[in-house]
């Protein structure tokens, strides 16, 4: 399906979404509050985005944006969803019940960025130790011993 069709779909289900087509794929900016319902729609609707191939987070210092790369195994179209969350108390609804792969990816983002995924079945640190302090992929993270500055 073309980007125009996907855009047309978004205007019906999420009128607040904004688009950015400068990159390779269509970028859609969504509100974190409405994301869960929208995700459910994207998965089950005619667009059939059944494959979440990348879930990550970017620290823009003023806010975090959680980035979802979605694709469809039937139509082979790809979109990028971005949701901005607050730095002080980053929270967003989990999508782990919609795309199972999100369970691990969200744990990783929680571990390295400290973004809390609400209603996640098992939100614990995945990679770092349980008593680790701080979130290493944040831009303000400092580790005087182990970090190499070039």
């Amino acid at each position: 399906m073309t980007n125009e069709e996907i855009k047309a779909y978004f205007t019906t289900v999420a009128p607040s979404a904004t688009f950015d087509e400068t990159g390779e794929w269509l970028n859609v900016q969504v509100e974190p509050g409405s994301w869960k319902a929208l995700a459910q729609n994207l998965r089950n609707s005619i667009l059939h985005f059944d494959y979440l191939f990348c879930l990550t987070c970017i620290d823009w210092k003023t806010h975090f944006s959680v980035v979802y790369h979605l694709s469809s195994t039937t139509y082979r179209h790809t979109i990028v969803i971005k949701a901005n969350v607050d730095v002080v108390n980053p929270e967003i609804e989990t999508v782990s019940n919609i795309w199972r792969t999100a369970e691990f990816h969200e744990r990783e983002v929680y571990d390295l960025f400290g973004v809390k995924f609400l209603h996640h079945p098992d939100l614990r640190r995945l990679i770092l130790t349980d008593d680790f302090e701080g979130y290493p992929l944040r831009k303000n993270f400092e580790d005087p011993i182990n970090m190499i500055k070039l």
């Binding site: 191939f53 990348c54 990550t56 980035v67 790369h69 199972r100 792969t101 369970e103 691990f104 990816h105 990783e108």
Partner: peptide, 12 residues
């Protein structure tokens, strides 16, 4: 961000 295949495969 590196999207590694093993990470997702392990989750299954």
């Amino acid at each position: 961000k590196f999207r590694s295949p093993g990470f997702s495969n392990l989750s299954a």
